[in-house]
Design a protein around this nucleic acid. Structure first.
Lengths: 201, 201
DNA sequence: TTCCTTGTTGGACGAACGTATAACAAGTGC
DNA sequence: GCACTTGTTATACGTTCGTCCAACAAGGAA
């Protein structure tokens, strides 16, 4: 009888993806301070050396995880907007509230995000990645606002204010979920959105 | 001739304060990952052992730094409100815009704050400290709103929305200051505040 | 001056870190 | 069934981490 294989080979892309996922889980559970090569390897069920083999350094793996989380968030928001149908106002509302409902409103996701932020002072590449993400978020919001009749001059301040509102609500919602009733944050965002855009036509 | 003293003794409280200040500077400059006992001691110009002597562990020093930064922020906001005079609306506006102007709107302060947040997953004491700070922030805001004529039923959602708006703006302003013109964030906050409270009377 | 208290130093210690690398073995092609 | 490629493991290395502690010395008391 043959002995059971000591390990399984994986498709390079699949292995990379599993390492990224493991990195995100460790970041969420332990914070940036506890996210070491060994911890990630243990979480992924592989040996520590494999991280160096695929990503070169642990910083590169973390940057890749950041990009992956960003893509997930963007995809979830896009899906919510698409599900809202053709009405511009409904699409705008979906865009705003998507961040305040599962799966984006999630403590683990916030922990991951904070871990990334904490790397910004020492890692300009992460900072740039974040800037681009936010610029894109605001730009899409401006498009939705324009379709809802917001005047051109009011587009930029309105997008900034709404983005800030969503970010702040998302932050507080994830930091202390017990503060909010089920769906309360999304409801607050809906009302605030109505108030904000009513003055910008 | 006597040799120059090898070191100077300090009043315990003064020494503690200088260590806290050094800790905050290192957190802002290096991020949480680079904030070690040795780095803090070097920044403060003392030997590493002294941190253990005064705070027991580096976690305790970081928690003390968190409390100190919180107190500074609260003091700056209170000063802004006091300087705004007796008019309730002016006081509310001062409360909101204070966070978006110096000295609170500061990249180093954000870096410090993020470093604290990144410790939350592994450090429940920091998390509790943060919750209390935010609850206090919202409670004062509710008082100011009530004096401006906001109805009792609308107090809580309005305070939450405005707090979120300020947090989000502060975050973006500190993360990428080049995105905003001088005073633009405060101006956006002023207009958004007007829109938000106009519907809650 | 001399003594005493205690703030302060500086190094020792084991643990954990990131990275590099040689040896191993899984799976594919022949 | 055999050889070859290369994904994977396990270990070693030097560094840095947090904590501890014995010795030192600054500054006030007697």
């Amino acid at each position: 009888m043959k002995p059971a294989p000591a390990f399984k080979r994986a498709e390079p892309d699949a292995r990379r993806a599993s390492l990224i996922a493991a990195c995100a889980r460790v970041l969420a559970r332990e914070g940036a301070a506890g996210t070491s090569v060994r911890a990630i390897a243990l979480e992924a069920g592989v040996s520590p050396g494999l991280i160096g083999h695929y990503f070169g350094s642990v910083d590169a793996l973390i940057a890749a995880s950041y990009a992956h989380v960003e893509a997930q968030v963007q995809a979830a928001i896009d899906a919510a907007v698409a599900a809202a149908g053709p009405d511009p106002r409904a699409r705008l509302e979906a865009y705003v509230t998507a961040s305040l409902l599962p799966p984006i409103a999630d403590s683990a996701l916030l922990a991951t995000w904070i871990a990334f932020w904490s790397l910004v002072p020492a890692n300009p590449a992460i900072a740039r990645q974040h800037d681009e993400q936010y610029a894109g978020f605001r730009q899409r919001l401006e498009q939705l606002l324009a379709q809802c009749g917001t005047s051109t001059a009011a587009l930029r301040p309105a997008a900034i204010a709404i983005t800030a509102l969503v970010d702040g609500l998302w932050l507080e919602l994830c930091l202390s979920p017990q503060t909010f009733a089920e769906g309360e944050a999304a409801e607050i965002a809906r009302r605030a959105l109505a108030a904000l855009i009513s003055t910008d036509r």
